[in-house]
Structures are given as structure tokens and as C-alpha cells.
Amino acid sequence: MSAIVAERLVREFKAVRAVDGIDLEVADGEIYGFLGPNGAGKSTTVHMLTTLMPPTGGRAVVGGFDVVKDGPKVRELIGAALQEAALDPFLTGRDHVRLQASLHGLSRAERASRGGELLERVGLADAADRKIRTYSGGMKRRLDLALALLHRPSILFLDEPTTGLDPQSRNALWVEVARLAREDGVTVFLTTQYLEEADVLADRVGIIDFGRIVAEGTPTELKTEIGRPTVQVAPADPDERDTIIKTLDRFGSPVEAEPGRLAVRLDVGYDLADVVRALDAEGLKVLHLELHEPSLDDVFLAKTGHRLEGQAEAQPEPVGA
């Protein structure tokens, strides 16, 4: 059974269609990366899947329950850590554990053991009795994750969990998320605007832009889908430029390269070694030679016409998103 299914999911805010007919399916135990720039509709989708906001069109089923008709049942199954850690600055970490555990109806004993275990696991055992206003951004994120896991949810939603974190905290969170999926079998729906995060963590990636999913697949599938690797060459002698172009043309079609360099996208059947051998056979000298595998950013560019990197300042999602 699929953990999450969305069919033609739509959310409109007055004139704005923040989510525009999304179809997606996430398998049990899978880490699904939902990749897109700010304002693409990621958070709005998460809000609908976590029952925080009803769709204005289509339907979504989470853990086998419809998010509109069976909201309470969905909430029992899921854990969520949303964009802002949503913690009360005047309560301590342990107060939050107590609150969250009570909301989920955990017994006092379970609350103490599970809460203690999770605080330990996220490295907050020593800071548990401090008020949240004294926590750093990374500590808040870790507490938020611990709270989301308190009632042992089978499906975990993480909305941009590493935005604003330092590299060390980010890596620690990645390790924990990967462990949750691999060891505990938790399904993870993770939104991110970081390509690396989706590439490293996700089993499958959905790319969203302007409220629509423009591509979906494993990172490898997506990268393969948009094409072959490119080889970039910097001629040592400018006079040999034309000869190098002719040589490269035998292995594929020319593509845009950095200034002073030449590039070719390799046709199927050729690889870097073939290019090296040909250049050597012709006695051509090069200063620099590099194989560039397609990245998710290339996928994003190919699918949307613009790059994801540098889109962080794009328009924010509408109210409630």
C-alpha cells in the first residue's frame, strides 16, 4: 500500500493557484524529496497532506485515510516538523515533550521513556529544561524533529528541515532522517529547496514549479532522463580550437561551455576515455578536460527553463502556505 497518494490536488487562494493539480504516490518506507524554489507550492502541499488545510480540488490519501474525511485518523499516523519550528519560547524543551505526548494520549511512563530517549537521540538531554528562547536554530529544529517522532508516526513530513542550519547540524539531521527510513521503516515526505539534500537523502524526487510537478523519479533516473554527460575541454593552443571542435563533434552534439572552453554532450556509446584517446591520436594538447554528469539542477533547468539555484528569493507562497 502507498503511504501517500495525491490525485489532481489543487489549492487556490483567491486568484492564486498555489498547487495546481498535483499527482503523486509515495511508497511505504520511502524517502520522497519534494524539490522546488520558494513559492512553488511545497509547503501548501504539505499543509494539505497533514490536514492543516483542505484542498480546493482533487483528493489526497495519507496512511490509507482521506485527508478531508478522516483528518483525525491521518493525524494519529503522521508526525510533522514544519518550516518554522513552531515552539513556544516561554516553555522548556521538556514542557514541549510533555505537551506533545499528552496531545497524542501517551501514558506518563511512555512519555518519560520515549521523551527521554528522543531528547537524548537529538542531543538535547542537557538542554531539556531550558526555555526555548535560549535555543539556537539548530536546537529548535532538532527538538521539533524529536516532537514529531514522539508518538512513533509511520509517516513523517519534514518541511524544509535544514533551511538556515549550519552544515554540521544539517548533516546530523540527514543522518537521522536516513536512519528513520532505513531502520524504523518510517515514510518520509521531505520538502527542500536544496538540490544536494534531495540528491543525498531521497529515494525518489518530485520537482515542483508553479504548483505543478514537472518531473518525478529517482535522482539517477531524472539525471539520466535529461541526457548524457558532457565533456568540457580547454584548448592549450588557441590555433587548435577548430581541430578540437571537429574531434569532439565525432562523439556528440556541442553544448554551451564556459568562456574559453568547448563542450560536447556525449552520444550513447561514448565515454570520457574515447574523447581522451581521440584527442591524443590527433596530437592535440589540452589544459583542462572534465566530465560533467547531469545534476538535479540541470534536470530542473531542463524541465522548467530556469535554474533552482538562486531562486530562494522568488515570490513567497500565499497566506497559509
Binding site: T50, T51, L52, P72, K73, R75, E76, I78, A80, L82, Q83, E84, A85, A86, L87, D88, Q100, L103, H104, G105, L147
Partner: peptide
């Protein structure tokens, strides 16, 4: 305003 209500809304079955 601070987003804390989302925590309550997600966690509370009723």
C-alpha cells in the same frame, strides 16, 4: 501567528 497552533492542529486528533 507564531505557528504554534499548527503543532496543536496536527497533533490533536479531535
Amino acid at each position: 501567528e507564531r505557528g504554534f497552533a499548527r503543532r496543536l492542529m496536527i497533533a490533536a486528533p479531535r
